[in-house]
Computed example of a mutant assay.
Amino acid sequence: MGRITNWMKTVWEQSMFHRAMLVAPPVALLLLAAFWTVGSRSAVQYYTAKVEKGDISQVVQATGTINAVTTVQVGSQVSGTIARLFADFNTQVTKDQVISQIDPAIFRAQLLQAEADLENARANVTGLLAQIETQRAELLAQKANVDKAQAQLTDARLNLQRTKDLFDQGIVAAALRDTAQSNYDGALASLHVAQAQYEQSEARLKSTIAQLDQAKAQVEQRKAAAELAHVNLDHTTIRAPIDGTVIARNVDVGQTVAASLQAPTLFVIAQDLTKMQVYAKTDESDVGKIKVGATAQFREPGAHERDHNPKRRHLRHHHRL
């Protein structure tokens, strides 16, 4: 290889003629190859067709999911353990049919406790009503005592006045005057005592009436608590909200469901499986090509692929970052 390179350098340096002789063979080979390639090409062919008028179709392809037109997620408003299941996948159910039962023991006990508290509150109201009637009778008796003490005071005042007149005339002794004065003072004190007892009885009656109002409010509160406990107990029985077919079951017997934050989904019921719709997501560049009511075609994958030709019902805009 080195000898060939040295020989080519020697020939190249001799003269222009030798250089041309050195380059001529490769150039001749290239020209021959080009001529051979151009000569082997076939003749250009032209095709003609009749001009026709027609529609231009624009097709938007998308992948989606097929769902029932109306589906309802059946949840639980209370927390507890699934005791029984009365429905499974593909079960035909009717509205208000029992499809599941949560263990009601705790909620039944809560209802009994709430009902007992309600009865206790009602008994408290009844006792306060009886106490009010008794205090009203006592108030009437105290009023009678005040009237009696007032009459005794009036009699003692008249007796004291007569005794003083007789004493001034020298008819009676000073001891009788002092006794009349003492009787008057005693009657006045008895009147004050009777009035104080009357006011005390009146205050007790007003206090009991206020307690009665509070007890009635507690009755309403206990009634609301009992109603809530009754509703929670009813919610342990899960019923189907619509007629349809169970297409999903998310719980098993013995599983605990927690409804503290949000209602857990126990079943999914499709109302009518003969009426289905396809949810498909399209690219933003194809949105302008889609119109409500336009003809659509979709194919369901599987062993027996079939084509369907529904109508577009809705076009929903959704912005997502």
Rank of each mutant, 00 (worst) to 15 (best):
G2H: 11
T70F: 02
H235K: 13
M21Q: 05
V23F: 10
H314E: 13
R122K: 14
K275S: 08
A224Q: 11
D147L: 12
A109M: 08
A34M: 14
N124V: 04
G170Q: 09
A303M: 09
N159L: 12
L158K: 14
A189D: 00
V69R: 06
D252Y: 04
R157T: 06
Q211C: 07
R136Q: 15
E115G: 08
E300Q: 03
Q195Y: 02
R306S: 12
A224Y: 09
L139G: 13
G127M: 12
N145G: 03
A229C: 07
A187D: 09
F298C: 02
V69W: 11
Q169A: 15
F167S: 08
V59K: 12
L140Q: 15
A263M: 07
A137R: 14
R122Y: 04
S79H: 07
E284R: 01
L128N: 09
T179M: 05
N90G: 03
Q152Y: 01
R136M: 03
A130N: 05
Q197C: 01
R239P: 01
A194S: 13
A189M: 06
V51E: 03
Q262A: 13
A210C: 02
L166Q: 15
D155T: 05
A24C: 05
V278Y: 00
V23E: 05
D117Q: 13
L32E: 05
Q14M: 13
T70A: 15
A174C: 02
M8H: 00
L191V: 02
N159A: 15
N120K: 11
V69P: 00
A240N: 08
P26C: 06
R108F: 06
R19N: 09
T295L: 09
H230M: 14
R3S: 15
A28I: 12
S57D: 10
A210V: 11
T236H: 06
E220C: 04
Q142G: 12
L31D: 04
V287Q: 08
P25D: 04
G39R: 12
A296F: 02
D213W: 02
A303S: 07
L31N: 01
D286M: 10
A263G: 01
Q200C: 00
D168H: 05
S100Q: 09
I242H: 01
L321C: 11
R306V: 08
